[in-house]
């Protein structure tokens, strides 16, 4: 019997095993190896030891890219989560009207990112919606995507718009899973709306917060499409996030060894972040 089970299990899992070995395990090891080599796809990789990493830490472009990524991550995640939570609290209550509003808010999140970015290209073009609104507000038209003072903020506005609905839905799900009697108890205690929000709702949503922050941060740190499509990383690298820096090194300059080293650094940062989150959540639950 157990041999039958073992054979069936191995058979059912075989395609996945082949896939994960071929497309994840081996490539991950290969990436680590490549990060210690110089490789341009012609010929074989040349071992260069830590050269790529040394070059990285002395490269202004890398540090500027890391800074842009940090900025991008902080200002994509922070405002998105705050807005999402503020909107989710009133939207979490039952009712057809609210369900309908939730559906509408979610639409940008369901749109393909590439299609949405193409739309924002037009919105940020000269005489586009952004200019129109800025003029109406008395600010006046701006070169949104071609001025290094504005480009990253323009990107961020788009990204927040794109993803806020997603986190609204997640927060709503988290809020609706909370026990109603807690809120009733808070109301009986005479707590005001704001007090309830900070002293009851926010602490109870801890798990949801953790989940949302992990998803949002890891997503933002790997974000490639908006920077690639809207600004190509420009102007003057003002929007060159790390994934774009990696892409350019690999596929524009054929520096596969150096690009692999960037990938490894990105991975390590993501793992440290995930690990920190994990231990924080664990200590929370004890």
């Amino acid at each position: 019997m157990s041999t039958v089970e073992a054979r069936a299990g191995a058979g059912l899992a075989a395609p996945a095993i082949v896939y994960f070995v071929l497309f994840w395990a081996l490539p991950a090891l290969a990436a680590l190896y490549l990060s210690f080599t110089s490789y341009d796809l012609s010929g074989t990789p040349q071992w260069v030891g830590l050269d790529n990493y040394r070059q990285m830490v002395t490269s202004d472009e890398f540090w500027s890219s890391a800074w842009v990524t940090l900025l991008y991550t902080v200002f994509a995640v922070g405002p998105t989560i705050v807005i999402a939570l503020v909107v989710a609290v009133p939207l979490a209550k039952p009712g057809r009207f609210r369900a309908w509003l939730r559906g509408l808010i979610f639409i940008p999140a369901v749109m393909p990112l590439v299609g949405a970015t193409v739309l924002w290209q037009v919105i940020y073009s000269t005489g586009g919606l952004a200019d129109t609104i800025a003029q109406a507000a008395g600010v006046g038209a701006r070169p949104w995507l071609t001025d290094s003072d504005y480009a990253i903020w323009a990107l961020l506005v788009m990204v927040i718009w794109k993803y806020v609905g997603l986190y609204v839905i997640i927060f709503v799900a988290g809020l609706q899973a909370l026990p109603a009697n807690v809120f009733e108890a808070a109301a009986i205690d005479g707590a005001r709306t704001l007090r309830t929000f900070f002293l009851v709702t926010v602490p109870l949503l801890r798990r949801t917060f953790t989940f949302v922050i992990v998803v949002a941060v890891t997503g933002a740190m790997q974000s490639f499409v908006p920077a690639y499509l809207l600004t190509k990383g420009g102007p003057v690298n003002a929007t060159q996030v790390l994934p774009l820096y990696l892409y350019n090194n690999a596929f524009s300059y054929s520096r596969f060894g150096y690009a692999s080293a960037i990938a490894i650094v990105l991975l390590v940062v993501l793992l440290i972040f995930a690990f920190t989150q994990f231990t924080l959540v664990r200590s929370d639950e004890e």
Binding site: L26, P27, A28, A31, L34, A250, F256, S260, A263, I264
Partner: peptide, 8 residues
């Protein structure tokens, strides 16, 4: 991250 395995 997919970025790690992309190049290999």
């Amino acid at each position: 991250t997919p970025a790690v395995v992309m190049i290999p």
